[in-house]
C-alpha cells in the first residue's frame, strides 16, 4: 500500500522542528509500524536525505524503548506498543502523522526521540526495596498472599515507555508512579519503606515538572500494558496514610 507520512523532524534539542511530508510506496500489511519506518529510512538514505531518528530496541513489546504519537494517539490506534503495531491497522492511501512524545518533562533529543531520564530519577528516589546483596532471608520465610502478589505482578509489568505521560493533558506521570507504588506496596518486603517511598518518589515527580493528576484517565487507556487507573487511587491512599503514619 501507499501512504503519506507527516513526520516531526528536529535536528537537535535546540532546533525548532517541523512536520515534513513523505510519500511511501510498497508498504506491506505484514510490516510492523517500525519496519515501515525502516523502509522509509532506506528510501531516504538512497535519496541522500538523513534518515528519521526513532527509538526501538526489543521490538517485542517489553523493553519500553519505542514510543511515537501516531495520529495523535500514544503508540497508535491499538492497545499495544508501537513495535507491535502492524500496518494491517492502516489502509492504502492513509495519511499518518507521526510525532514524538509530547511532554515538557520529556525534552526532544532529535526527530522522534525524547529524553525520558526523568523516569530513572523517580526510581532513584525510592522506587526500590533496600536489600543489599547477600542480606536476603530464605525466600519462603515470608509468604506473600497470592492475590496481593498477583496485583504486585500486574502493576510491575509497567515498561516505563512514557505513553501515560504523553497521553495526559497535564503531562502527569501518576500512572507510572502509581504502578511502582502499588507493586512494591503490595508485597510484605515493601512495607518498611512504604510511606517514605511514596513521599520521595512524588517529590521527585513534581520536581521533574510532571503535572498533577485530575482523574481524566487518558493514561490508562493509552497504556500498552493495561496498567489500571486504580493504581493512582492507591498512590493517593498511600500518600494520605504517609502523612498520618509516616
Amino acid at each position: 500500500m501507499k501512504l503519506t507520512l507527516k513526520i516531526w523532524r528536529q535536528a537537535n534539542a535546540s532546533d525548532k522542528g517541523a512536520l515534513k511530508t513523505y510519500e511511501l510506496d510498497g508498504v506491506s500489511q505484514d510490516m510492523s509500524f517500525l519496519e515501515m519506518l525502516d523502509l522509509l529510512n532506506e528510501q531516504l538514505l538512497h535519496n541522500d536525505e538523513e534518515p528519521v531518528a526513532f527509538d526501538s530496541d526489543c521490538r517485542e513489546g517489553i523493553c519500553g524503548m519505542c514510543s511515537l504519537m501516531i495520529n495523535g494517539e500514544a503508540h497508535g490506534p491499538e492497545v499495544t506498543t508501537t513495535c507491535q503495531l502492524h500496518m494491517r491497522s492502516f489502509k492504502d492511501g492513509d495519511t499518518i502523522t507521526i510525532e514524538p512524545w509530547r511532554a515538557a518533562s520529556f525534552p526532544i533529543v532529535k526527530d522522534l526521540i525524547v529524553d525520558r531520564s526523568a523516569f530513572d530519577r523517580i526510581i532513584q528516589n525510592g522506587g526500590y526495596i533496600s536489600a543489599n546483596t547477600g542480606s536476603a532471608p530464605e525466600a519462603n520465610s515470608v509468604p506473600a498472599p497470592r492475590d496481593k502478589a498477583m496485583r504486585a505482578f500486574n502493576t510491575a509489568t509497567c515498561i516505563g515507555c512514557g505513553a501515560c505521560v504523553a497521553a495526559c493533558p497535564n503531562g502527569s506521570a501518576s500512572l507510572f508512579l502509581g504502578a511502582k507504588i502499588t507493586h512494591l506496596g503490595e508485597l510484605p518486603q515493601g512495607q518498611p519503606e512504604r510511606y517514605s517511598r511514596v513521599q520521595s518518589m512524588l517529590a521527585q515527580h513534581d520536581h521533574e515538572g510532571f503535572g498533577g493528576c485530575t482523574n481524566i484517565g487518558e493514561c490508562a487507556s493509552a497504556c500498552p500494558k493495561e496498567i489500571p487507573l486504580d493504581v493512582i487511587s492507591q498512590l493517593n491512599k498511600d500518600l494520605r496514610n504517609s502523612m498520618i503514619l509516616g
Binding site: 526500590y128 526495596i129 536489600a131 546483596t133 547477600g134 542480606s135 536476603a136 532471608p137 530464605e138 525466600a139 519462603n140 515470608v142 509468604p143 506473600a144 498472599p145 497470592r146 502478589a149 504486585a152 505482578f153 510491575a156 507493586h183 512494591l184 508485597l187 518486603q189 515493601g190
Partner: peptide, 21 residues
C-alpha cells in the same frame, strides 16, 4: 541465593495459594 535476593527486592514471582513460591 539468587531467588532469596530477588524476593527480598520485591520481584513478584508466581506463588501458590499459601503464599509460597
Amino acid at each position: 541465593n539468587i531467588i532469596d535476593q530477588c524476593v527480598a527486592q520485591g520481584v513478584p514471582f508466581a506463588r501458590d495459594y499459601g503464599g509460597l513460591l
